[in-house]
Nucleic acid binder design. Structure first.
Lengths: 198, 198
DNA sequence: AATTTAACTTAACAGTGTTAAGTTATTTTT
DNA sequence: AAAAATAACTTAACACTGTTAAGTTAAATT
């Protein structure tokens, strides 16, 4: 029943991550202080620094987890038995849905600029996995001769720009009088698909 | 030679705006404190609060100025003698260029989420002007029967999503191994245009 | 000449991220 | 079994932050 010490230690790191993620999502990164996180988990603020370099590092670790989740979601779509173009469409939609379902989270991951000295080292290491999943979906469409261009990287980055654009606009400019949400998202995806189609 | 008092007062507001903009651009909104701004202009920190409600308000006022500049830039393109589709293309490119030329500035305007109680009141009052300039450019293309859809708002929002996407990605994910910048921007614009074209 | 107003400052509050030093309990070594 | 080392955590403090209430000083108005 009782956990031994190493389990408790391992748990504490995850406990901090869980508490921080929940609070970042609920109140926004800037509005959550190390002291508040510490209070929530019942430790002193400085304990967090035993597990994470600083507040930015804590954010980065949470980003990694979320990137990994998004990558799994998109990846599982690619294993459905549908044509490559429809799977690409579904992948794009999953990306947007992921962002809109976790707006504060998406903000933290993709919108907020994370300037850290060590950022270059591990930046997007899981984010790259998610992007590469998109690339392989695009690659499948190219193999099926469905696109007018065969530069996988260029097309994938263009698609990413499009879906990141609509996702982040809907999140950060919530006061703007956008068209009906589903209709707008459909239009963005169909415009992108139609723009790269053969 | 010497300015009278009302001129000095009027100047001080602009002086604060100029100093704040320069520092926000150079160091990022979060890294500039009211005290640093005050020191730069040679007044006490609290003086700023005589001209602006709070730090967020100061940011909003700067945004308004920049929106207005962007709107003028795009608007002047629409008065060239070229076909409506090319002018639309040039407008899209001007938007992206504006963002990349003033990355910290763009960040402050379009990327950073500005949650203020009074935001809804004046949010994007100049931003709307910029957006409406894009709308009228789209509208011209529709009049010339060049688009496959005639929903001006929907198309404009889709285009905005695309150009905002590439601009903000290039700014905030500068560590990502993007394709060659000009090639990528061209591809985004051509994909969007080709996606809405008749 | 007295009063009001405008423009600005001082001092302070309540918070922030972060660090250095200290404590306590457990584990390892002798 | 006693001593030393380590791990896990806390206390106290530093140097900041945005913001406000109260105070000052000089000019304009009555």
């Amino acid at each position: 029943m009782a956990k031994n010490n190493s389990e408790i230690k391992a748990d504490l790191r995850q406990e901090i991550l869980d508490a921080a993620r929940e609070m970042f999502v609920a109140e926004g990164y800037a509005n959550v202080s190390m002291r508040k996180i510490a209070e929530k988990i019942g430790y002193s603020p400085t304990t967090i620094y035993l597990y994470f370099k600083d507040k930015n590092d804590l954010l980065h670790q949470i980003c990694e987890e979320s990137f990994a989740q998004l990558a799994r979601n998109i990846s599982s779509i690619q294993q459905l038995s549908a044509n490559s173009m429809d799977k690409l469409r579904m992948g794009l939609r999953e990306y947007i849905n992921f962002g809109l379902k976790h707006p504060s989270h998406y903000e933290v991951i993709f919108i907020m600029p994370l300037k850290s000295e060590v950022e270059a080292e591990y930046e997007m290491s899981q984010g790259k996995v998610a992007f590469e999943t998109l690339c392989s979906s695009v690659s499948d469409c190219i193999k099926d001769n469905l696109l007018k261009n065969n530069d996988v990287g260029l097309i994938s980055q263009t698609l990413w720009a499009g879906i990141h654009g609509i996702t982040s606009l809907l999140i950060t400019h919530s006061g703007f009088p956008f068209a009906e949400r589903e209709k707008l998202i459909d239009n963005v995806i169909e415009t992108l698909i139609s723009g790269i189609e053969a």
